[in-house]
Amino acid sequence: SEHYTFDGEEQAIRFMRDMEAKNLKYELQIHNGKYIIQVD
């Protein structure tokens, strides 16, 4: 699995939509205002 970190919500949402379009599962965590997305 890989981790991707985003500072902004818009970037994170765009990335998650992209993952959904590719049928990839992901998990979102928010730490200290950063959006951390783990992709299986």
Rank of each mutant, 00 (worst) to 15 (best):
S1F: 13
E2P: 10
H3L: 14
H3P: 09
H3W: 15
Y4I: 06
Y4F: 11
Y4W: 11
Y4K: 03
T5W: 10
T5D: 04
T5N: 04
T5L: 09
T5P: 02
T5E: 12
F6W: 02
F6M: 03
F6E: 01
D7T: 08
D7W: 10
G8E: 15
G8T: 15
G8S: 15
E10V: 06
E10Y: 06
E10G: 05
E10W: 08
E10N: 05
Q11E: 14
A12I: 02
I13W: 09
I13N: 11
I13M: 12
I13D: 06
R14D: 10
R14C: 14
R14Q: 13
F15R: 01
F15A: 04
F15D: 00
M16I: 11
M16L: 08
R17C: 11
D18Y: 13
M19S: 03
M19A: 08
E20Y: 05
E20T: 06
E20A: 09
A21G: 08
A21E: 10
K22N: 08
K22W: 07
N23T: 04
N23Y: 06
N23I: 03
N23R: 08
L24V: 12
L24D: 01
K25N: 08
Y26V: 13
Y26G: 04
E27T: 15
E27K: 13
E27P: 01
E27I: 14
E27D: 09
L28K: 02
L28D: 01
L28V: 12
Q29E: 09
Q29Y: 14
I30C: 11
I30N: 03
H31G: 04
H31F: 12
H31R: 13
H31S: 11
N32T: 03
N32A: 08
G33Y: 03
G33P: 00
G33L: 03
K34M: 11
K34S: 06
K34A: 05
K34D: 02
Y35I: 05
Y35G: 00
Y35L: 03
Y35T: 01
Y35N: 00
Y35V: 02
I36T: 07
I36K: 04
I36L: 08
I37L: 06
I37Y: 02
I37F: 10
Q38V: 15
V39F: 06
V39Y: 04
V39W: 05
V39L: 09
D40M: 15
D40H: 15
